[in-house]
Design a protein around this nucleic acid. Sequence first.
DNA 1: CTGTTAAAGTGGTCAGACCACTATCGGAAG
DNA 2: CTTCCGATAGTGGTCTGACCACTTTAACAG
Lengths: 262, 262
Amino acid sequence: MTSINLAKFLPVRSVRTGLMREQVVDQVRVMIKEGKLRPGDRIPPERELARQLGISRASVRGGLRFLCAIGVLTSRHGSGTYVADGPPALDSEPLDMLAALHGFTAKKMFEARRVIEVAVAGLAAEHATDDQLTRIAEEVTETYAALDNPREYLIHDFGFHRAVAAASDNPILATIMGMVSDVLYQRRVQTVERAGDLKQSVDMHRRIYRAIRARDPQTARALMSEHLIQAERDFTSEEMSESVDSDALKNSAGNPGKRRSA
Amino acid sequence: MTSINLAKFLPVRSVRTGLMREQVVDQVRVMIKEGKLRPGDRIPPERELARQLGISRASVRGGLRFLCAIGVLTSRHGSGTYVADGPPALDSEPLDMLAALHGFTAKKMFEARRVIEVAVAGLAAEHATDDQLTRIAEEVTETYAALDNPREYLIHDFGFHRAVAAASDNPILATIMGMVSDVLYQRRVQTVERAGDLKQSVDMHRRIYRAIRARDPQTARALMSEHLIQAERDFTSEEMSESVDSDALKNSAGNPGKRRSA
DNA sequence: CTGTTAAAGTGGTCAGACCACTATCGGAAG
DNA sequence: CTTCCGATAGTGGTCTGACCACTTTAACAG
């Protein structure tokens, strides 16, 4: 680079009425859709992007923050900004906010979850690989082992459902299910200490697993439906039994899924 | 306010290792969950939020940008920042990016859509109000009227599905369906000019509508399933017939849903 | 009362600086 | 030679203050 920033002499703002930070988003979007950016890749430093696009670093950061917010990028302080890797996932925060904003009821939430999970269970029975079956079985085992530890139990409870979704061979449904169940998980973790019969629930997990392993979609669907109807009942009764110390452990609550921040 | 900014004298950064902009997100999140912020409300100006929280305006903007990105807030240049209003909706951009990043196939996309829409059609048959039935009928009519205008046709095609979802009485499923179908819409709009028999599709819409109006969930579900299987076939064949001028109208493509920007 | 204009308010951008954290590489200690 | 550690860039995070672009409002002229 031989010269000072030319941008200030060019009416860049005028030619494209769009926002400056949109340039960053568009640039990254195009590169992703053209396959030039793969999960795990590192993108250029903010200062260099600013120079390349002829805009300020503040605007670059605006665009990058947007992409971080929707889960496409992740920033690591001191290291760089990377394209999100790992299994595809949608942040549950938007849905969670939407639920609070529009007063979505738990009943409707469970209904949505049931619609998706029942289908997912059927697909898993059709498509699960041996590895995926093993993964499901492991979660069942871990859940049994955590029957006396509500917090740990819950992690493997939802881990089971996540494993089933992963075995459905449909990443879109798995991703959406993960988003919905994550919202439910965050509510559940606050009440699970007052839970009733946990064993009954794991037993059902085991039966679902067996149906999937037996390649029996119909049974898998039926059992999953029954299981979720029961889960809703349990959840509702947990919420009913208000206890004074309910928020004692609210803060230290772990999360089985990934949790993005701004 | 009687004093200068005190923040610089306090080791704010130290006590909470968290990011500064997270303060903004947390503040808004709490206010939403406590019901103090309703859709359509205007939040304080950036400069005032910065003063209240004792952080810089840049950090405030960071937090607000995050909330805008996930669809909770919308900024209006020169006016203010508002809590998102209108019907609940999840931005399709995250799912769209995820699809590009992980190579989700159209086949899987349609499968996911079918799972959700079939269920939604059944629920609509059970719960649709008269107004919602009218809304669905209107979309069918408009679609018939646009049979000779592929672009307009497509808007009302997806409008029909959106109307059915709205009638399901489950905002979560409706929101998720909107997100998925929006991704499909954006791909479809690029190929619809080469579409084949549009009338067959809208005829099916009419039959679905009748099943819903007749309060016949089973038929509604069956017809919706059949309809979407056919829609997938149509879409696939449209994509096969590659044409040189396919991107001529790509830019001017309208969008029936809302489209957020950074 | 109506239409126009000026002013204030607000989000968007810019500039340059400094802080906090990470990764890397060289040299010192074992 | 290996291991450990400290210096050193490199990178994202934050701060400051200024100015620009747009919207809204209110004052003003007709």
